[in-house]
Simulated scan of single mutants.
Amino acid sequence: MAGIGRPHQGPGGLADTLTEARNAARVAAAREFRPAVEHTDELGVSRLLATWQQSDITRAFAETALAPLRDADHAHLLTALRAFLENGGSSAATARALGLHRNTVAARLRQVRDRPGVDLDDPGHRLALQMACRAVQPPGR
C-alpha cells in the first residue's frame, strides 16, 4: 500500500506532505479490493473518512462491532462483509470481487446478519460497519 501527499514548502511543509501521504496510504490499505496506491488530491471525501478511521472512538467501535467476525473461524465472514460494503451492497459484485459463487456470498451474508447488532438493511448501520471495517485491519493482513 502506498500514499502520496502534495508538495508543501519549508520544513513544516514536509511534515504536512508526510501526514497527507500517511492518510492516503491508510485509505489505500482499507481498499482491499481496489488499487493499492492513493494520491491525496484524488481522495475527496475519503480524506475526511481517513480522519474518522484514525479516531480512538471509531477504532473502539470497530473492535466491539467486528469482534464476532475477527477470529480465525469467522475471517471469511469479515471478508465477505467488507467486500459487500465496498461493493455498494451488491451481492453479485461481491461474488465477482471475491471469486465466489453468488450463493456462497448469500450464505456468508446470512451468517453475518445472524450476528447480534448487525443490520445490513439499515443504511446508517451499513455506514457504521463500513467505517469499522476500514478502521481495523482484517485478519491475516
Rank of each mutant, 00 (worst) to 15 (best):
M1P: 06
M1T: 12
A2M: 15
G5K: 00
G5N: 07
G5W: 00
R6G: 02
R6T: 12
H8E: 00
G10Y: 00
P11V: 11
G13L: 02
L14I: 13
L14G: 07
A15Y: 00
A15W: 01
D16P: 02
D16L: 08
D16I: 09
D16Q: 14
L18G: 04
L18N: 03
T19A: 11
T19P: 02
E20I: 04
A21F: 05
N23G: 14
A24W: 01
A25S: 14
A25H: 02
A25V: 07
R26W: 15
V27F: 08
A28F: 08
A28T: 02
A28Y: 06
E32I: 09
E32K: 12
E32Q: 13
F33C: 06
F33S: 05
R34A: 13
R34Q: 13
P35M: 06
A36I: 03
V37Q: 07
E38H: 11
E38M: 12
H39R: 15
T40D: 12
E42W: 01
L43P: 02
G44P: 02
G44I: 00
G44W: 05
G44Y: 02
V45Y: 11
S46M: 11
S46F: 06
R47Y: 10
R47P: 01
A50R: 01
T51L: 14
T51I: 12
T51G: 15
S55N: 09
I57A: 15
T58F: 08
A60C: 10
A62D: 04
E63A: 15
A65H: 02
A65K: 03
A65S: 14
L66W: 00
L66E: 01
L66S: 06
D71T: 10
D71L: 12
D71R: 15
D71N: 13
A72G: 08
A72H: 13
D73N: 14
A75Q: 12
H76S: 11
H76G: 08
L77K: 06
L77D: 01
L78V: 04
L78E: 09
L78Y: 14
T79E: 11
A80S: 15
L81R: 01
L81H: 06
R82Y: 04
R82W: 10
A83E: 04
A83Q: 04
A83L: 05
A83N: 02
F84D: 01
F84P: 00
E86Y: 07
N87G: 10
G88Q: 13
G88C: 09
G88R: 08
G89C: 08
G89R: 01
S91L: 11
S91R: 15
A92L: 14
T94M: 07
T94K: 03
A95F: 05
A95L: 08
A95C: 10
A95Q: 00
L100S: 10
L100P: 02
L100T: 01
H101R: 12
H101V: 10
H101S: 12
R102S: 09
N103V: 15
T104Y: 05
V105M: 06
A106C: 06
A106F: 08
A106V: 07
A107L: 09
Q111T: 10
Q111G: 01
R113F: 04
D114W: 08
R115W: 13
V118M: 15
D122K: 09
D122G: 03
